[in-house]
Simulated assay, not measured.
Amino acid sequence: MYPDSFDYYRPDSVEEALELLDEHAMDNPAVLSGGHSLVPTIKSGLASPGVIVDIGEIDDITGVEENGDHVHVGACTRYSDVVGDAIVEEHVPGLAEATGEIGDTQVRNRGTVGGNIAHADPASDLPAVVVATDATIHAQGPDGSRELAADDFFLSVYMTSLGPDEILTGIDFPKLDDGVAAYEKKPSPSSGYAMVGVAVRLEFDGDTVSKAGIAANGALDRAVRLEGAEQELEGSEPTPAVVSAAAEAATDGIDTDEMMDDIQADGAYRAQLLESYTGRALEKAVDRR
C-alpha cells in the first residue's frame, strides 16, 4: 500500500524539531527516528501524518556515553551501535543482549533505541530492559526537559507518558557493577517479536541478591515489573530452589484475563510462558555469576 502524501522535515536540533511540531500541530505530525515502527504503520494505513519530522540525524541525541554511575544512550543511537559497544557490554549487559535479539542486521542498522522505547510496542524487546534496570527516560518539550521513571513510562499498547509535544531524547541506564543480567524471549515464529520476553538484572552482596530487577514484555499491554519474582530473590542466595520459586511467582498479582490474547497465544498460555521464561532468564543470569 502506498502512503498518503506528507511534508517531510529533517531538523538539525531538538529545538528545531520541537518548533516544527508546534508549527504543524494541526497537521497530525509524526516524529521519525529509525523508521522501523512508523513506516510500516503508514504503509499499512494505520497512520496518516500530514507532516513527518525526522530526528534521526541529530548528533546531540545520538551515541553512548559513560557518565558517573550510569550509561547514557541517546535516543537516536542505532541498535547496531549498541550491540558490541564496550561501555554497554561492561555496564549494561542486559541492554546489549536484548538489542542483539531485535530483528536482523538490516533492522539493527536503522532502528534506534529511543524509537523502540517511545513506540512502546508491548512485544518489543527493550521496554522490559528499561523497567528491569530502573532506567530514567529523558524528554524535551516546549516547557523544557524532564525525567521520567521507567515504572511510570509505559502505559498501554503504543502509549507512554510522553506528551504529544515532547521528544524522547535519551535514556540513563544505571551501571551494573557487582551483578549479572540476562534476557530471554519466546519469539513469534512469524515476526520475531516477543510472545513473552523477560529481562533480569541481579545485584549482589556477597552470595546474596541485594537487589533484583525483573520485567517482562509481550505478556501484557505494556512492559511490566515482576514484583513477585523480585521479592523471592532479594535477600536470598539464588539457589535452584529459590530460582524456581521466583519463576513461579512471576505471575503473582497478574490476572490471566489481563494477559495478551491473540492468534499466536491466549492469556493462559502466555502465563505459562511468563513463568517458564522468567526461570530461563534467571538461570542464565545466575550461571554468569
Score class of each variant (00 low, 15 high):
residue 131 V to C: 05
residue 138 H to Y: 10
residue 151 D to R: 15
residue 146 R to D: 04
residue 149 A to W: 02
residue 126 L to N: 11
residue 109 N to Q: 08
residue 113 V to G: 02
residue 124 S to I: 05
residue 116 N to L: 10
residue 125 D to L: 00
residue 119 H to P: 02
residue 141 G to F: 07
residue 157 V to R: 12
residue 129 V to F: 11
residue 112 T to P: 01
residue 114 G to R: 14
residue 140 Q to D: 13
residue 142 P to K: 06
residue 123 A to N: 08
residue 135 A to L: 11
residue 148 L to G: 14
residue 109 N to C: 03
residue 158 Y to L: 15
residue 154 F to H: 11
residue 146 R to T: 02
residue 141 G to V: 09
residue 148 L to N: 11
residue 149 A to E: 10
residue 113 V to T: 08
residue 132 A to P: 02
residue 105 T to R: 10
residue 157 V to D: 15
residue 150 A to K: 03
residue 111 G to M: 04
residue 159 M to Y: 13
residue 107 V to P: 07
residue 131 V to S: 07
residue 134 D to S: 10
residue 107 V to I: 13
residue 121 D to F: 03
residue 125 D to W: 00
residue 147 E to M: 01
residue 123 A to Q: 08
residue 125 D to P: 00
residue 128 A to F: 00
residue 129 V to Y: 12
residue 121 D to E: 09
residue 136 T to M: 12
residue 111 G to A: 08
residue 154 F to P: 07
residue 115 G to K: 01
residue 128 A to R: 06
residue 158 Y to K: 15
residue 122 P to C: 08
residue 142 P to T: 02
residue 141 G to S: 12
residue 139 A to W: 01
residue 106 Q to M: 10
residue 148 L to H: 13
residue 133 T to E: 00
residue 115 G to V: 01
residue 130 V to I: 00
residue 129 V to W: 09
residue 158 Y to A: 15
residue 146 R to G: 04
residue 140 Q to Y: 08
residue 117 I to C: 05
residue 130 V to N: 00
residue 115 G to E: 04
residue 152 D to T: 13
residue 155 L to C: 10
residue 152 D to H: 12
residue 157 V to G: 09
residue 129 V to A: 11
residue 138 H to T: 03
residue 147 E to F: 01
residue 110 R to W: 06
residue 153 F to K: 12
residue 142 P to W: 03
residue 150 A to S: 11
residue 139 A to S: 01
residue 114 G to D: 15
